[in-house]
Amino acid sequence: MQQVKDLGEIQNFCKKIRRHIVEMITEAKSGHPGGSLSAVETLAVLYLEVMRHDPKNPQWPDRDRFVLGKGHACPVLYSVMAECGYCPVDQLITLRKLGSMYQGHPDRRFLPALEASTGSLGQGLSIGLGMALAARLNGGPSRTYVMLGDGEIQEGQIWEAAMFAAFHKVDNLAAIVDYNKIQLDGFVKDIMDLEPLAAKWQSFGWHVITLDGHDIAALREAFAEAEGAKGKPTVLIANTIKGKGVSFMENNPKFHGTAPSREEMALALKELA
């Protein structure tokens, strides 16, 4: 990993991940396509270029760690991990089925290469902070990345963790808010508006980078900037489109937590060809 890829190569990788997401959720007949599709570029850049990790040695102590706070978006994580070689690609379609390593929310009992079991929103940032503190005590180079949903950060524990991270100067951690503007019941601004979001994180003592979460170059730059920011944690506010890449899913609250039909899958795969 860590090698900078050709832009076209990453874009093709992202398309492949999106196809996996649509296929596996269709096959499962339930799941969360919208928030998986919005997070594809971030995870692709992290796993292909940014993170120091070794799929052949998943327990390498000095590896970088990724925690998916918004655990319901696990189809994107499973797909990326599978394509990196952590787990079988041909099993992705067993998502949510009895005995599958690809559980409905990330579960380390079934897929030990996951860094954390998540699914109850609001806990991922705290878990990541513990990992980052352990790395700091060990004097190792390990960095921790935590992806948060925008709806997820309505949870109070996020802001407990946000205070902790700045107070303890946890600069070997970066959080990414997948700001796709939609949660289960509708648009975030109608459920519990987060704005002014950047100012909130700034006032909590974080280094804030706002960017287009589908722009590969911007993501590369942001993660490099995060690594260089010393003395405070960094948050990437990644403006994204829920359901990105599938026209009828984009910005459509219905596809937060609804599986596509067979017909919809065929249409989606055509668009993602």
Partner: peptide, 26 residues
């Protein structure tokens, strides 16, 4: 002092931070 983490009055955060520290070998 270097192995002691003041979490403030935030027990939920403290518990999950503890789990993360355990995952890092502590």
């Amino acid at each position: 002092p270097e192995r002691f983490f003041s979490c403030g009055i935030a027990e939920a955060d403290m518990v999950a931070i503890g789990a993360g520290l355990a995952s890092g070998g502590k």
